[in-house]
């Protein structure tokens, strides 16, 4: 297979991965438009670095990692600016006196939003995106033991939040 055929296939695969990339990015940008910006930049970046992708590696993990790095770069460059449009981490506010009458059933999404970032990332990659532990650990650049302990804590916290909010199961 020649280079242009390979690249054609990669382009097609990236197109099919777009929905997952967007979903993954939303988990940390907390804002769909930022997520789309991040995905666009990541895809553009990936295409200029196709030579760095080992074809034995999963394309989705490789792209997730780029998406994540784009966001990290963006956060760094924003510094305090992100305070303007991004709400405070909801996770910081658990236990604060939230408005009475807002005891709505906690959705999975809002429970996820309350997880500390590192746990949310682990849950998002393994439970939502279905990556094997090894791949997820690579995306996050952490040892597999760290990944599994974040995942375990994230799960426990989710379970607790979803149960206390009236889950009858």
């Amino acid at each position: 297979m020649n280079t242009s055929e390979t690249s054609q296939i990669v382009h097609e695969q990236i197109v099919t991965l777009l929905p997952r990339l967007r979903r993954y990015a939303r988990n940390f940008t907390r804002n769909r438009h930022d997520a789309d910006d991040v995905v666009q930049i990541a895809v553009e970046r990936a295409l200029t670095r196709l030579d760095q992708w080992r074809s034995d590696a999963r394309l989705d993990s490789w792209l997730f990692k780029i998406v994540r790095n784009v966001w990290i770069d963006e956060l760094r460059s924003r510094g305090r600016r992100n305070k303007i449009f991004l709400a405070a981490e909801a996770g910081d506010n658990i236990g604060s006196d939230s408005m009475a009458g807002e005891a709505d059933l906690l959705s999975v999404q809002s429970a996820m939003a309350r997880l500390p970032g590192d746990q949310r990332e682990a849950v998002s990659l393994v439970l939502v995106e279905g990556l094997p532990y090894k791949e997820a650990a690579e995306v996050l650049d952490v040892p597999i033991g760290t990944l599994t302990s974040r995942l375990a804590r994230g799960r426990e916290a989710l379970q607790a939040m979803l149960e206390t909010e009236g889950d009858t199961r």
Binding site: K83, A88, Q109
Partner: peptide, 12 residues
């Protein structure tokens, strides 16, 4: 600090 991330209007 108390808003739900799913609310259509987010305060910065």
């Amino acid at each position: 600090a108390e808003q739900s991330p799913s609310s259509a209007v987010q305060i910065g």
